[in-house]
């Protein structure tokens, strides 16, 4: 029995009411915290930025675990492999874009100074 013959269980099947309620409570918290951080002028910009990034990442994991029921069961092997690969490609795409375009921006802005 290789992984291909055990692919019966998709993510999103096999949950319980408890899992969905836990996921909802966590998701609501992880939504209210970044909105509060962004709307409260008293919080510093950097603190708010970090709160937004961390809560977004945490809430994505909460949705995957509690709503899509992504877990360590062997029948979900290909679900995990494919999402891990996708996360890697997204990281290369987004980080690479920001890196390259940041450098281009930097070079473009340096030009007038050189010409003067």
């Amino acid at each position: 029995m290789d992984a291909l013959s055990t692919r019966g269980q998709p993510a999103s099947y096999g949950g319980h009411l408890r899992t969905y309620v836990t996921g909802l409570v966590l998701a609501v918290l992880l939504t209210l915290i970044p909105f509060g951080a962004a709307m409260d002028a008293g919080i510093g910009r950097d603190t708010a930025l970090w709160a937004i990034v961390i809560c977004a990442a945490a809430q994505m994991v909460v949705h995957l675990v509690f709503f899509l029921h992504l877990n360590r069961r062997p029948e979900q092997h290909w679900y995990r492999i494919s999402i891990a690969f996708t996360v890697l490609v997204i990281a290369i795409l987004v980080v690479g874009t920001l890196w390259i375009m940041g450098h281009l921006n930097h070079n473009m802005m340096a030009m007038p100074a050189v010409m003067n």
């Binding site: 939504t31 970044p34 909105f35 951080a37 962004a38 709307m39 910009r45 708010a48 930025l49 937004i52 990034v53 809560c55 977004a56 809430q59 994505m60 949705h63 995957l64 709503f67």
Partner: peptide, 18 residues
């Protein structure tokens, strides 16, 4: 789609207002 929306409200709306 809800997971994608987490990215949208965090990186577009919330960060856009900072």
């Amino acid at each position: 789609l809800d997971i994608v929306w987490i990215g949208v409200f965090s990186f577009v709306y919330l960060m856009g207002t900072l």
